[in-house]
Design a binder for these strands. Structure first.
Lengths: 218, 218, 218, 218
DNA sequence: GATGAATGAGCATTCATTCAT
DNA sequence: GATGAATGAATGCTCATTCAT
């Protein structure tokens, strides 16, 4: 609740009615973010979410039809915030390498801002699980965003013989898992580790890609 | 239920009692496999599982204490089956490259046998999801197996300056995501596509790794 | 249900919401009283209680966490109602004899108001049982009240050589059993029988006590 | 189980079949005695009982139709054992006083043999309960026995104006409660305390009774 | 629009009892 | 007669959702 205003919903409205409406919506979204991170999507109940606000249970349904809708709203929020960065990366990229490097870096930045140990640790709670994944609405949404973007980018390029869908999958999977690992390791991710991890990830990918393409086209 | 005999529990027993007991256990395990794949671990209820058999609800508890125990049994089954392959890979590997290549190939083989479209598609059910993950008990277990094995292997090697935990994460994430992609694309995965996809994945990784290490140790 | 208003919870509130809430709580308490009396505490289920109201099953849990909580509420109710009488007895008593006589009389009065044939008959339901006990939450609570009070009183007195714990037990046991007997005999206990039974009980006790003490302190 | 032979069922049978039949029955009865004492009649399940034997669950139903039947059998056992003592008391009694004194003493003897702290403590477990009662099948049965006997005895006497039913109730209630108190206090009840408590109880009763009758018939 | 009590379907689990072996 | 797995009714309890206030 303390971060109630962390991500505002951006709707500027003037009447008092509108203001409280917006505030309630935000209140629900923030509670949901928290609870999803702590308990996971499946395990969280609508009750858990409203318990995290000072609203009454019935009020939830004035704003969302179900927890799925909240999930979607959260996802949309993240995407909206993330897209500009991704766009800038695309605009500045002169090559596919530039683009991938930039996207991965943007992702790790985003992750270090919104991810936290609970998020990363949660997924594996029920299993014995050394596995760790970053599985909040926000992260899923951002991944999808990158995926879409990356595939589109690759499709416009002509990377001889490389299956762009697989390449995208590889990039996503690699980044996601390494990212989870990073979060889990340094809870307070600092700037430096982000740079280094992001360099590791894009280095691996890009060098691999280079060899693949050069091997493919002689 | 059609795949009732997919994975028999191997216990040969003679009395009729023993035979039906084994059959019931298998029946539950198979139903669980299916349901976990369709709904995901969190979302499936014990009732969902027994509904997938022709047993009465109480009977479930003659075999398992909870869905978690079923999960574990499934995981153990897979690991038991997968381990010999992984061991052979390790025994035959002369280098880290050999090992990674072999492990990834083994994983894709396993995936093509036990994965199916539902498995791959499930995870994203609740979201709009282009995302795909392979998240059944079996696959989680196999991943953990590979992860453990890989980290152990890497720790014995001296890969100058590479963080083995991150490298492992990268390999796992890449393989998982690409694997999910493969399953989703050709439901009836053929031998050839396995070879090609597995070559793509290990190529990407190993070449990336090579450049990374050579760059690191000039 | 006919005695729905037997023991109102006393909370006067104005809104309709508050009124129905109070009514529902009472409804549950009354149903519980009945069912406890009929089936006994152990044997009654939460469902039995709600079945005795026209509420839905879930509603129970809006008011009580468990049947134990209902039990406690019933007990508290009785105690609250009984205590003033007991206090008056204590205040007016000039001697231990006065006190015992008064307490027993108060108990029989209370019993004749809240006891009924079912109550008395219940306990022995499962057995062939000529035995009869008064074992509802209310009566247990009232007994405990008397017991505490009596022991405290006796401890302040100096009754040479008499074990106050045993004496209390004797009084309680005697009153309980004789009370059960009375209820069972005249379901509609009249004023006169109360007087006579209560005189019998305290006569027995007090005369016995007198001889005991005089025998003890020659 | 160690006391498996504490109370044998007395049936001497010769064939091997008969012997095991009898042994099984005893085994169930002994387990039941134990479990009833520990958990109380209501709370114990048939499963609890058979778990206390080395028999299979189905076997239970070859001997008893339900836990109620076991209860009855236990009760009958106790009565069978207790009756001779009571008879001797009756035969030796020259007066109502003698009889009551003897019966109460016999009861306390029996109680000190079969009662134990668990038994006495159990009843009040679910309540806040300072109250204590002795409520096993055995004790209930013995009480009923005494009650019947006592009423019969009193009916043959002519105790001017005393209601024999109430008097019996008074005796029973007093003895039961004081007995419970005794058990709870000295778990290992010794001979001496039995004598003293039994003297206290009958003293109270008999002196009370004396005054009552003398008061009644001047 | 906010409230929060009522609803009843649904879930995990236990248990008495049956019956094929 | 002994066994112990199968059965399914019953229980305590939770939860999404509705709706009178």
């Amino acid at each position: 609740m303390s971060e109630s205003a962390l991500i505002s919903n951006g709707q500027d409205a003037c009447g008092k009615r509108e203001r409280t409406k917006a505030a309630n919506r935000d209140s629900i979204l923030n509670a949901a973010r928290q609870v999803f991170a702590e308990l996971g999507y499946e395990a969280t109940t609508v009750r858990d979410i409203i318990r995290g606000t000072d609203l009454a249970s019935g009020t939830f349904y004035n704003y969302f039809k179900s927890k799925e809708e909240v999930f979607d709203a959260l996802a949309r929020q993240s995407v909206t915030e993330f897209q500009p960065y991704l766009r800038k990366v695309k605009d500045n990229a002169d090559s596919i390498e530039d683009y991938i490097e930039g996207a991965i870096h943007a992702y790790f930045m985003f992750l270090s801002t919104y991810g936290n140990k609970e998020v990363a640790a949660r997924a594996s709670a029920s299993t014995e699980g050394d596995s760790l994944r970053v599985d909040t609405p926000e992260m899923q949404a951002v991944f999808n965003e990158i995926r879409r973007d990356l595939e589109e980018y690759l499709d416009h390029q002509d990377i001889s013989g490389i299956d762009t869908e697989y390449l995208t999958a590889a990039a996503i999977g690699l980044a996601r898992e390494v990212g989870g690992c990073m979060i889990l390791r340094d809870n307070e991710t600092n700037k430096q580790s982000i740079e280094s991890v992001s360099k590791f990830a894009s280095g691996l990918l890009l060098n691999g890609l280079k060899s693949l393409t050069s091997a493919e086209t002689p």
